[in-house]
Design a protein around this nucleic acid. Structure first.
Lengths: 254, 254
DNA sequence: ACAAAAGTGTTCGTCCTACACCCATGC
DNA sequence: GCATGGGTGTAGGACGAACACTTTTGT
């Protein structure tokens, strides 16, 4: 308790200077250079202030006194990147002492957004002349050194994403309303970073009752592929007793 | 934003009065009345102050400015209950607006402690005349109305426990160093609340290479059962990139 | 001897995997 | 026609569920 005694002489504002921040790791899928395989991408914000100025950091901000944690994640994500995710879930609370010059507890969320929604939202902001500044998309597997402990945070978010894709339906959070099985499979392959047998993949996903076949087909260079849509009755992920109350800021209520 | 306007007239200290608390749901196994089946138990602390005075609440306290979150969980758990868990993991950060009269963000942990350690630690405090006050053990399935949103928190912790017991080895966090397969099975049966086939259970657990058979046997009313110990090489649970650095306050480093 | 728990063996169905094969389209 | 991805069929292995059966102790 000696450390506490020392600090008790400081003004109360300093003793209580533990601030709460909210950040979000938001993933999408895309192709960086050329037509190779799709990769997991995430947006980062260039820091323009003192702690770690010039480094890239996760989008986020301070928790407002009058908003819940989920709302704070949505708000700060929108303010810094202009994005509204299709799926949002709390990841972890980081509060080690050395992670920031001042004492900051960060409630970190992770989120998903399908590539077509990314394009649409970015285009909307560009048209409205309020495009966010200093935001760049990075390949999640090839990140530079980030501010604070954000490298570790992204690693953990990727681990959760890879785990959760195996036992839930969150892959649909990275797809548009209608999609082919090949597109769905590509989501899995990008996240898990390995090839999947198309035949077995087909049986697995449409045998589990989450997919509703449509009568429309995606025509392309070869035999047209049937378009599927997501069964709205089932949740993207089972969160147990933590049933997320519907958040109007989420773009698509599936 | 009318609420904001009202509050903006208050002194800044009140606006910024978001405090960070740490609480822990710590489970053990035991028999409440008679020799029925073992049940999941957890200790609660009787509130003696204004918010929800007279109700039972999770052990916890305020985050100190000079400690990490894990350390705060260990400290507040020890201060309120005198317990040092065998397994400790962050559960979730709760920060809704209505959950407390003042604005509180609670970082909640969940923990395990084997019954023999509970007895030993309680006995040690009784002998040292520093037994914690107002602590009572409850059957997790039959809780009264708790303070704040702690009922929901316990439900979520139980859900995590039940999930995690299926794909990790955390059941060992509720067992002493050496145990029989029947005792291990009882842990699973208590948590999952259903009977398991002894024959199949045996094959599953000792086929997975986590158990080391000893040459000692537990003698009892019938044929002696071989004692096993836990293979120290494998972690209790895979936490991915969040490898918990060894916490000296954890009682047993397995 | 008998009851009861410890421990083994066997069968059956389900699911995953690998891979052969047919189908439909653009060129 | 032929290349290519869409889509179906099928055999083999792994694994869990169910349950009969043997072993070993206390009473």
């Amino acid at each position: 308790m000696t450390q506490t005694d020392t600090l008790l002489e400081a003004p109360p504002a300093l003793v209580d200077a533990t601030r709460v921040a909210v950040s979000t790791v938001i993933f999408t899928l895309g192709r960086k250079t050329g037509d190779e395989n799709a990769a997991v991408l995430l947006p980062l914000v260039l820091r323009t202030r003192d702690p770690h100025e010039g480094l890239w950091a996760l989008p986020g901000g301070w928790l407002d006194a009058l908003e819940g944690l989920d709302a704070a994640a949505s708000r700060t994500l929108a303010e810094t990147t202009g994005l509204a995710p299709s799926y949002l879930e709390q990841l972890y609370a980081f509060g080690d002492l050395g992670r920031s010059p001042s004492r900051v507890v960060s409630i970190v969320y992770w989120a998903l957004l399908p590539p077509d929604e990314v394009d649409a939202q970015v285009a909307a902001h560009a048209a409205a002349q309020n495009a966010p500044e200093n935001v760049t998309w990075f390949d999640a597997a090839r990140l530079p050194r980030l501010a604070f402990d954000h490298n570790q945070i992204v690693e953990y978010a990727l681990w959760r994403l890879r785990n959760k894709v195996g036992y839930s339906r969150i892959a649909h959070g990275l797809l548009p309303e209608e999609f082919t099985l090949a597109e769905l499979r590509e989501v899995y392959e990008s996240i898990l970073d390995r090839r999947l047998d198309p035949a077995n993949f087909r049986r697995q996903v449409d045998g589990s009752g989450n997919l509703v076949p449509t009568e429309r087909f995606r025509t392309g260079s070869h035999r047209p592929a049937r378009l599927y849509r997501y069964n709205q009755d089932v949740e993207l992920a089972d969160r147990g007793p933590l049933t997320p109350r519907p958040d109007p800021s989420l773009k698509r209520a599936r």
